[in-house]
Amino acid sequence: MKIEEFNNAIKSKISSGYELKEDKDSYGNASAWIILSNKRDSESVAKAVKAYKGRCIVATAYKNIDGTHTVIYHFDIEGLIINLQLETEDQSIFSITPILPSANWAEREIREMYGVEPIGHPDKDRLFLDYSLAKGVLNEYISLSKMQLGVSETDVLWENVNKEVKQ
């Protein structure tokens, strides 16, 4: 699969414009980055991946300083990685799982880890995160015990160790 060929396939399908970047690792494997201006266009790209019998490997998300979220889908078509990047301001994206079933778990995970809702996803259940924990855990950076008690588990255990050690 060549990046150019894929680019030709999506060119006319994307309504709001995008940026295409090419990348190569030190072993000569190429990969593509497609940065969308409108998150809605993810469905068009997913359809193109499907047409080439590609799959969604996984999706990554992170929270930006201004509170928006960036979501990156990683697709594979015959060994070529295509990274699709989009932004969301309202904690929602349009699910591509109905088009590419391989995106199923990736989108559920983004929902529970970042609280970003994949609209139209067929499965509403939690994946890994226990119901005793609020969704969106990866939006925070401080450990749970430190947040609740002001001391971390490490602090507590080391206090016990230090009681046993002659200073």
Binding site: L129, L133, E153
Partner: peptide, 11 residues
């Protein structure tokens, strides 16, 4: 002691 995983929200 939870070792390397200590102080995670899920532990």
């Amino acid at each position: 002691s939870c070792g390397i995983f200590r102080d995670s929200y899920a532990i």
